[in-house]
């Protein structure tokens, strides 16, 4: 919050929170789907990624 003339903080506080919470929700969904979701198709597609990111899977 030290800066005032740069944009992602020049978003108003409520816009910043909306953007932040949206980002957290979408990001959490994507990471869950690629990393943790218990679906065989997702698991097999993401197999090497899951292992190398150290996600606990199978």
């Amino acid at each position: 919050m030290a800066t005032s003339n740069v944009s992602s903080v020049s978003l108003s506080l409520s816009d910043r929170l909306v953007a932040g919470i949206l980002a957290l929700m979408i990001g959490g969904f994507l990471v869950f789907g690629a990393g943790l979701a218990n679906s065989a198709v997702l698991h097999d597609t993401a197999h090497d990624t899951r292992h190398s990111y150290g996600f606990p899977c199978h």
Partner: peptide, 16 residues
């Protein structure tokens, strides 16, 4: 997908 997800999470924390 994972990269975009982690990036959004990082940005989300930064924004909030």
């Amino acid at each position: 997908v994972t990269g975009a997800g982690f990036s959004l999470l990082l940005a989300g924390i930064s924004l909030t």
